[in-house]
Design a protein around this nucleic acid. Structure first.
Length: 643
RNA sequence: GCCGGCGUAGCUCAGGGGUUAGAGCAGCGGAUUCGUAAUCCGCAGGUCAGGGGUUCAAAUCCCCUCGCCGGCUCCA
């Protein structure tokens, strides 16, 4: 058969042999051979053969080291090497699954007792020995029966379980040295291709993610084609650690979560509270501009409300338990929506009034299992920047487009210009008719297309009450965070039986759009802290300017300048302590204050100021007036957009 | 919730059965009056997460509880 490899050439392949047989031929004219190939959008490796294929000729797209898919081959093999090392050191261990991931690989392994740090080091040593041996990988096709026999002999119970779930008649196994694994591939040619590998951590993981199943030990690692890339990756991990919002939140005195108050419950310290307040004010201002009406609703409501809304059926396990007072039962709110329905229902609504948009910075409480709490990113009490839009079916697309406008504006203001967008479609369990779901899904897609936004479909991932758009924002380290969500809801209007009067004087059911732009203020602040590494843009910096004196002689001049800046509306702190300038600068720098105003005898005599920026730039002989004018511009939320 | 690790001064961390538990930073007092990332000296600061147990003796070993960290799962 004919094999065409894009940009490389055409070759004749004996269908009973693997692609490997072409290597000598290719090597004649190319120094670097591909890592693997893409065929029909699937990754295949050199070990692949086309014995079952009918067609005479096929075309492959080569994948080289520089292509990001290449790491997938390498890491998959790395996972096998890890498993091999573990089996050699701990022969009774039983293998689960061992895939490559975005950042590395892992292998889930059952063993009678947990692996320790020392075990990990031993395993890593063994891995390096295996790599040094440059063991070639081999692929074999077996019938399921043969495979079952094989893995029975190997006493790999989990593999047998997997085998039973594979529908195909034949399965593939990969070998290297005396190690055998059930595996689809793809892999690299030799264990020697792994030039840099590191085991990173170990943790428990349920077999197939189900907590009723036994727990395996998951060993995480990562691998690269070069030591430099590994080092860069480890440096990145360091950088992520440095930016951890929990660490910075403490250092910069932004927030705290206290054992004495409760897990997942956030206290905003003055400096964090300022940031939050600035964001909230900006948010309210923008929502007024975009035709939303601000409302406030309670944190708690009668249990019956949650019965009508369906939360007790679908969401009970995430709600704090009921409390009874004077024979009535109340429950903390996990969402704001039912309240906004009551706002809507204050009077008979006309089709002319729609769309109606209510917004609220609504604090909700959700019971999250203790093991999942994480700083500000996963908490039990948080404030959603929530809104509910009540509209007619014919307004849906337009409203969604407007919401997208607003989302994108907000994200831009906070420095997020890249995102991934997901449209989640109808799940198996859903309310409403399939027709209206289709319409809503269409409206979501059209709205995205109107804005020229690319999206991916998450099939069946919609909420039971309607399809949704989720936006994941990309931060400066390239990490994605889920914040914004836009959800269409047919369910609540039905449950609460809300209506509007149409042109024909008949009653119609409005559609509801739930949406949060920032998601939760807690999570968003957490993401912001990490994105800016605590060095916030001027307009949201808790302390914008710090006035430093060089000696006691200039304290009164310092006081005068500080007061003038405060009067202009800036957030100013002073450091007039009897310390050396270098010391004061160091402190201000650690506090990540955007501007330091430094005052000595010279400045006082000439009635100017000296400015040092957070980046270390020094500007001498500045007139206070000029400084203020510049900062007033910089104090605008959209300052960076206009640059 | 489950698995593993951890919990010592406000913060970062030493001490891992044997007198009275340490250091640096921060704080307080004093000296120093200094030009763009740490001046010096002194002082104070602890129910060693909480509870129970083993022991002549527990921060240290064991058990329970709470919290945190990394995962599993879920999501704003």
């Amino acid at each position: 058969m004919k094999i065409k490899i894009k940009n490389i050439g055409e070759f004749e392949l004996d269908p009973s042999l693997s692609l490997k047989s072409l290597i000598p031929e290719i090597k004649k004219s190319f120094k670097e051979i591909p890592i693997g190939f893409k065929y029909n959008n699937e990754l295949i490796d050199w070990h692949h053969s086309f014995s079952n294929l009918n067609s005479e000729s096929i075309e492959l797209e080569p994948i080289f080291k520089k292509n990001k898919e290449a790491l997938y081959f390498l890491r998959h093999t790395a996972a096998h090497v890890l498993a091999q090392a573990v089996k050699e050191l701990f022969p009774e261990a039983k293998l689960g699954i061992g895939p490559a991931t975005e950042e590395g690989f892992y292998y889930d392994i059952y063993y009678k007792h947990p692996f320790t740090e020392e075990d990990l080091q031993k395993i890593e040593k063994k891995i390096k020995e295996i790599i040094k041996k440059k063991l070639p990988l081999e692929r074999e096709k077996l019938s399921k029966e043969e495979a079952k026999k094989l893995f029975q002999e190997l006493k790999e119970d989990f593999k047998l379980e997997l085998l039973n779930e594979i529908p195909d008649e034949k399965v593939s196994i990969y070998k290297q040295g005396n190690f055998i694994d059930l595996c689809k591939g793809p892999h690299v040619l030799s264990t020697g291709d792994i030039k840099a590998i590191k085991l990173l951590s170990i943790s428990g993981a349920y077999w197939k993610g189900n907590e009723k199943n036994p727990m395996l030990w998951r060993i995480y690692g990562t691998a690269f084609f070069s030591k430099e890339e590994l080092k860069a990756y480890l440096d990145r991990l360091e950088e992520i650690k440095k930016r951890d919002h929990r660490k910075l939140g403490k250092e910069l005195e932004l927030f705290t979560i206290e054992e004495g108050i409760g897990p997942g419950l956030v206290i905003w310290l003055p400096k964090g509270a300022i940031i939050r307040n600035i964001i909230e004010n900006f948010w309210i201002e923008q929502h007024n501009k975009y035709g939303y009406q601000l409302v406030y609703t309670p944190h708690i409501a009668l249990r019956d409300l949650w019965r009508i809304s369906g939360h007790l059926d679908f969401y009970a396990e995430n709600m704090f338990p009921p409390m009874e007072l004077e024979n009535r039962v109340y429950q903390l709110k996990p969402m704001n929506c039912p309240f906004h329905i009551y706002v809507y229902n204050q009077k008979r609504r006309s089709y002319r009034e729609l769309p109606i948009r209510y917004c609220e910075l609504g604090t909700v409480y959700r019971f999250e299992r203790s093991g999942v709490l994480h700083g500000l990113l996963r908490v039990r009490g948080f404030t959603q920047d929530d809104a509910h839009i009540f509209c007619r079916e014919d307004q849906l697309e337009d409203e969604l487009t407007k919401v997208l406008d607003l989302v994108i504006y907000f994200l831009k203001v906070f420095g997020f210009n890249e995102y991934k967008i997901f449209v989640s479609t109808r799940p198996d369990k859903f309310v409403g008719s399939p027709e209206i779901w289709d319409k809503a899904e269409d409206a979501l897609k059209k709205a995205l297309e109107n804005k020229g936004l690319e999206y991916e479909i998450d099939p069946g991932e919609g909420v039971f009450y309607g399809p949704k758009i989720d936006l994941k924002i990309k931060d400066v380290l390239g990490r994605f965070w889920q914040c914004s969500t836009i959800q269409v809801d047919f369910n609540l209007p039905e449950r609460f039986n809300i209506v509007y009067v149409g042109e024909d004087n008949k009653f119609y059911r409005p559609i509801m759009i739930h949406r949060a732009l920032l998601g939760s203020l807690e999570r968003f602040l957490g993401v912001l802290i990490e994105n800016y590494a605590g060095a916030f843009p001027f307009w949201i910096s808790p302390v914008q300017i710090k006035v430093l004196t060089i000696t006691d002689r200039t304290v009164s001049y310092g006081e005068k300048i500080a007061q003038a800046l405060i009067k202009e509306g800036f957030r100013v702190e002073t450091d007039f302590r009897n310390e050396k300038l270098n010391y004061k600068i160091r402190i201000a720098q650690q506090e990540k204050v955007p501007y330091m105003v430094i005052l000595g005898d010279k400045e006082e005599q000439e009635e100017v100021i000296s400015v040092r920026t957070r980046k270390g730039e020094v500007l001498n002989n500045i007139k206070l007036r000029d400084f203020v004018n510049q900062l007033k511009k910089e104090n605008q939320p959209d300052f960076l957009l206009n640059e």
